[in-house]
């Protein structure tokens, strides 16, 4: 499937946060692909390309089953090769960590929490405890935040850096990964390892979800949800019905993302406040529970209600 398969049905617009904010078809997968069908240059579509949150909702909706997010990542890579957004490229390349010799971790279960969760040591400890039922779960020293950002932006990652990131993980049987871009890449890089989305895994723990109630707005982490929509939709629907909580799912059963993605945080293209307000609009909630720490930070900027990580429901 390629951009030429888009026949302009506009379904992708309906869950697209980029289009929702701009109300301009140029800022949508359809707009990008239609422009390409009419010989647009990378330069001409760059503003839309680099505004996309890669939330993946469009992948679920597209009746032509175009792999839209992968295509946008490829287009970003091509844009960099053509010298477009050179400052952004330099900026992200400078954030890529220098490869260091890492030793392989001995534990079977490793958690890659990401930067925001690392700054919440109490929560992280709870997560470690929750996920250590069978074997002791350890926190990875290098959880590849820089790699996740590079993947999202479409920046080339050197073989050495990739190797230094993967080497400590090679012995693990199971990885819990917070970042969805990293999760997708690890499916290719470590095909034999059991890879779990951290938030989704926590949402499967009854001791946590039983604490949810109808005053809660439960924020599903959008990227990993859409990546595996068919499997996860049933789980979240059950969660919603059983606990009576609200979720950030729209009528299409896609998760409305926050604008807390790493690229949008580094170089804001979408208004984080507007996105948070849309998630909250018309809802009567007392508390917001998030799967992803970055989403929690974004939501705490737009509401006076308590915002807590799902792991913090432990003992709550």
């Amino acid at each position: 499937m390629s951009h030429s398969n888009c026949h302009g049905c506009s379904l992708c617009l309906l869950s697209c946060p980029m289009w929702q904010q701009r109300r301009d078809v140029q800022y949508s997968p359809q707009g990008i692909f239609k422009a390409l069908q009419h010989n647009a240059t990378h330069d001409e579509i760059a503003p839309a390309l680099f505004s996309c949150l890669l939330c993946g909702a469009c992948d679920v909706l597209c009746p032509e089953q175009i792999d839209i997010t992968d295509m946008i990542k490829t287009l970003r890579q091509e844009a960099f090769v053509k010298g477009i957004e050179i400052e952004l490229q330099k900026n992200i390349e400078s954030l890529l960590a220098q490869p260091v010799a890492e030793t392989r971790l001995e534990e079977n279960t490793i958690i890659l929490p990401g930067k925001a969760l690392r700054s919440m040591p109490d929560t992280l400890t709870k997560i470690q405890r929750l996920l250590s039922n069978e074997t002791h779960a350890v926190i990875a020293t290098d959880d590849g935040d820089d790699i996740a950002l590079a993947l999202e932006a479409g920046i080339h990652i050197s073989e050495q850096r990739r190797h230094s990131f993967l080497e400590p993980l090679q012995g693990a049987k199971r990885l819990y990964i917070s970042n969805a871009h990293l999760l997708r890449a690890l499916h290719r890089w470590l095909p034999a390892t059991e890879l779990c989305a951290l938030g989704y895994s926590l949402s499967q723990l009854n001791e946590l979800t039983s604490k949810l109630n109808k005053g809660d707005l439960y924020l599903i982490e959008a990227q990993s949800f859409h990546f595996d929509h068919k499997q996860k939709i049933t789980h979240y629907d059950q969660l919603r019905y059983q606990q009576g909580c609200q979720t950030n799912m729209d009528l299409q059963r896609n998760a409305i993302p926050t604008a807390a993605g790493a690229l949008n945080t580094l170089r804001p293209a979408l208004d984080s406040t507007e996105q948070g307000n849309w998630i909250l609009s018309g809802r009567n909630v007392q508390r917001i529970v998030v799967e992803c720490a970055e989403d929690g930070l974004a939501m705490s900027q737009v509401t006076h209600h308590p915002v807590l990580h799902i792991a913090d429901l432990m003992g709550a």
């Binding site: 422009a35 069908q37 009419h38 001409e44």
Partner: peptide, 15 residues
């Protein structure tokens, strides 16, 4: 007026 702007609206659902 760029071709990719106007081309986006080249046809309707009927095609």
């Amino acid at each position: 007026v760029a071709p990719h702007n106007t081309g986006t609206y080249m046809t309707d659902a009927g095609g």
